[in-house]
Each structure stands twice: as structure tokens, then as C-alpha cells.
Design a protein around this nucleic acid. Structure first.
Lengths: 240, 240
DNA sequence: CTCTTTAATGGTCGTGACGACTATAAAGAG
DNA sequence: CTCTTTATAGTCGTCACGACCATTAAAGAG
């Protein structure tokens, strides 16, 4: 940060890339666009775009998120910086430094075509070889990093509620954990742990709802105000 | 990442800032330089500099780390990207996007003056109002974010060994946790937890060393190969 | 209607991690 | 020698957690 006049500095292009996750039918989905131009024309890529001269990276990310998803209340969505990717050769055309973000969307409306007319839609996130791989640029790595980050944050923050609508059942919340971790969780034990963790959820009095159409109606909860969980909800077997 | 020809993009200057920590006499210290130029002349700041056209941000960070600390074996030091700070007004002169890194140094030799002749030395990290605050730019926030990150990573990774020399005693390792967390830990319980965590440390057979000059000589350990800890070593009371 | 299926909810039990605490061992200071 | 300091070993009660079982309340099939 010091020595401006002693170092020569080169200008960089700065972009944002977004790994936007949602839960659909109990499975984790990610928002991907289809590139229409070279390089990587026709390949899938994470949505994103250039940071404008007067905005912070997070502002740019939220603007792009609104453009790509068509969601109205982008202000309340969970958006978190993942990390910055700056390898000199990550874009064959020019020097591009990209700040990657992870976004969590509760209910997923159909994706909008972005302002650059690229096709955008939700595709299931798969552990093995997903049908859309490999993505353009280094987006496979960014997506994998984002998934790992989300999985880890579910353990020690109340982030899972960001995948849910304002009111939800414990079964829906459990499906979030199962979809992200790719593991089965015992409903009874999950319930005990969630209710024993202060600030994770709070009950909505007198409300009940049917989740899958079948089965006993479940009680309805709201997200609690806690950010850090004590104790954390650890994954069944280490990593995913 | 798409739509290069539809969006106008502005060039940004890209820098790295480093929050370099070490343990001295059982207390956490941070490496700070003194600015010699406007703005913030005479104020303390985190070491850092511009990213060169042909290097990644991490490469630039490691180069700056070598220049500022004078350490020879920078290759083996722990260096981790923290996050990127991109608020438009964070530098009054121009638009600067800074990728912040956290570095952990085991034994702390005296700091070198950087190549731009700025004074650099180790100052104790204080929870209250440190004597060097406020730092230049948004470095107070970066430093606080870095400290929180390091404290959190001690819980679920074997990162604490990065503060220690290649061979260390459990008392020295415990001092790392105490210095970063600002909390007292019971020696016996700490020993039981560390030894029960596979891959954290491994014993050096037949070696013993006196730590503080007094007391029974302690057994010597090396860092284990584990990155993630199972179970994690949680902080005594939530956050610090 | 009755029976089956499904999911929520409530409970038990054994294991293991952890904090508080006590005791012992090995060094230096006086 | 005694006292202090630090490492090391062990005990004990509490609590979190996983595996498991039982009950309840709804939908759907017949």
C-alpha cells in the first residue's frame, strides 16, 4: 500500500463470479449460464460480470445476482465473499482478477436470461462428474470451493435457514443439511440438536403445515437470530 | 465473465495487504510498517504492495512477506487468503482493490525495513485500544478480520503448529492457543485433547526440553499431517 | 370404512468428550 | 533441605450425540 511512486503498477480488470445455490426437491442446485462468446463459447459458466468504477465488489455481486435470478428482494439474500482468483492465465484474453461470491437462495424461481442474453438456469449439483462439467475458465474450482465453504458454514452458523422460506418446518431444514452434505440425518436426533441450539430457530405458535403431502403435519419455525452456533452441528463423517 | 464487449470496464490497481502474526513471550504480535508518505504519513499500516502483471496475488503476498520479514524460508510459511477489500473510497487517491492475506510466522526475527525504506517491526496485538491504532486506510478492519479468522481456524485445523518451531512442547503449543484466544487453558485437559486428536502432533521419541527454565522437562512433539481436526478444539466461551 | 404408508415427535440407552479437580514427578531457587 | 514451577497422570460428574424404538397424525389404497 505504500511506495506508489517506486513501483510501476499495471491496471487489472476486476470481475465478480457468483456461485448461487438453492434447494429444489431436496437436492442442491446451482445457477449456471451458458456462454455465447469465445472463449469457452457454449460452455457453462458461473454468472458474473465486471465491477463498475463506483461500486464495491459486493455491490456488483448483488447487482449481478438480481439480473441473473430476477429476484426482487435481493437485499435480504445471503451473499458472502468466497475468495479472489488472480492467476495470471485464468482468462486467455487479458489479466482478470475475479472476486468470487457465494449466494444462498431460498425458493428458486426460474432463472432469467441475463442482460447479455446468456441462457441461465438451475442445474443439480453433483458430487461425481456433473453433466455440465467442465465449466469455463477456472469455474469448476470456484464452484467446488463454494460448495465446501457452504458445507462447512452449515456446521457452525445458522446459515441453513437462508435456504428456507421465512417460515419452515424442521423437515425442510433437515433437507437443507442433507442436500448440502449429501448425507442422511436421523429426524429425531436432528430435531433434538436444532432445538437444543439457542438462537437457531424459534417456534411459530399454533402453526402447522404438511410438508410432502403425506405424514403428520409439522410445526412451523422461523430463523433465529444467532450467527454462531453453540454447540455446532457437525457433519456425520468429517468432510464431504 | 461474459459480455466483455457490452460492458465498459475500468482498470483497477490491485494490491496485497498482509496481516502477519507471531507469538513472542506468550503474546500475539503483528507485523506493522510505518508509512512515510501521504496519505496517512507517519501512521502504522499493514505491509503490502502492488501485484505485478505476471504474478498471482498469493505470489505477490509471499514476495512481500519475504521483503518485509527478511525470512529466508518463506516457501514453508503458512499463508492464507483472507478476503478482498474493494470499497471505492478505501484509498483517497485512486481505485485500489486489495487482496488481504494472513501469514503465521513461528520464530520472529527482527523485521527488516522494506524495500521502500518504511520502518517495520512487531507490535503486540491488543484487544482493547492498541497503541498503534488507528491504522492507515481500512487496515484496522482487515487486522480485526484476520485475527478472528486465525482464532476460528485454531479450533478446527492444526494451524497452531504454524506458530511453533519444527519441534515444540505441548506447553508451547498451549501458549499459542492462549495468546490467540486470550484465554487460559488447563494444561492437563489441553494435553488430553491434543493427544486424543489424531494427526495434530506426533511425539519425538526420547527428546525432552525445558521450556521456561523451571519445572519438569517436557516431551517434544512435531506437527502432525492433519489439516482438519476431529474432534475440533473449541474455544472456552464462544468468541473472543 | 379399514389398513397401509409416511413423516413428525417423543423417549431411552450406551458411549465418549470435556471441564473441574487432585495427585505425582522433575527441575531450579532459596 | 523446602518451596515453587511446570509437566504429566488420573478421577469424576455432566452432557452431547448416535442408534434405536414407540407413538401420533395425516394421506392414500382397497
Amino acid at each position: 500500500m505504500q511506495g506508489y511512486d517506486k513501483y510501476a503498477y499495471e491496471p487489472f480488470a476486476v470481475t465478480v463470479d457468483l456461485a448461487v445455490f438453492t434447494i429444489r426437491e431436496g437436492r442442491l442446485h446451482v445457477l449456471l449460464v451458458e456462454r455465447g462468446e469465445q472463449p469457452y463459447a457454449g460452455r457453462r459458466a458461473l454468472p458474473g460480470g465486471f465491477v463498475q468504477p463506483d461500486e464495491a465488489a459486493e455491490t456488483a455481486a448483488r447487482r449481478e445476482l438480481a439480473e441473473e435470478t430476477g429476484l426482487a428482494d435481493v437485499a435480504g439474500l445471503h451473499l458472502e465473499q468466497l475468495r479472489t482468483y488472480s492467476e495470471p492465465d485464468r482468462d486467455p484474453r487479458m489479466r482478470v482478477v475475479s472476486v468470487a461470491f457465494t449466494a444462498l437462495v431460498p425458493d428458486a424461481p426460474e432463472a432469467q436470461a441475463g442482460s447479455d442474453a446468456a441462457k441461465a438456469d438451475w442445474l443439480p449439483y453433483g458430487e461425481h462428474r456433473p453433466a455440465y462439467a467442465p465449466l469455463a475458465f477456472d469455474h469448476d474450482r470456484i464452484l467446488a470451493d463454494a460448495h465446501e465453504r457452504v458445507g462447512a458454514k452449515l456446521e457452525y452458523t445458522g446459515l441453513a435457514t437462508a435456504f428456507c422460506p421465512p417460515e419452515f418446518t424442521l423437515g425442510e431444514l433437515r433437507q437443507v443439511y442433507q442436500a448440502v452434505w449429501g448425507a442422511e440425518l436421523d429426524p429425531a436426533n436432528f430435531r433434538r440438536k436444532v432445538l437444543a441450539t439457542p438462537g437457531l430457530v424459534e417456534a411459530v405458535p399454533g402453526a402447522a403445515r404438511l410438508t410432502g403431502g403425506r405424514g403428520k403435519p409439522a410445526a412451523v419455525y422461523r430463523a433465529g437470530g444467532a450467527s454462531a452456533l453453540h454447540p455446532p452441528l457437525l457433519r456425520p463423517e468429517g468432510r464431504s
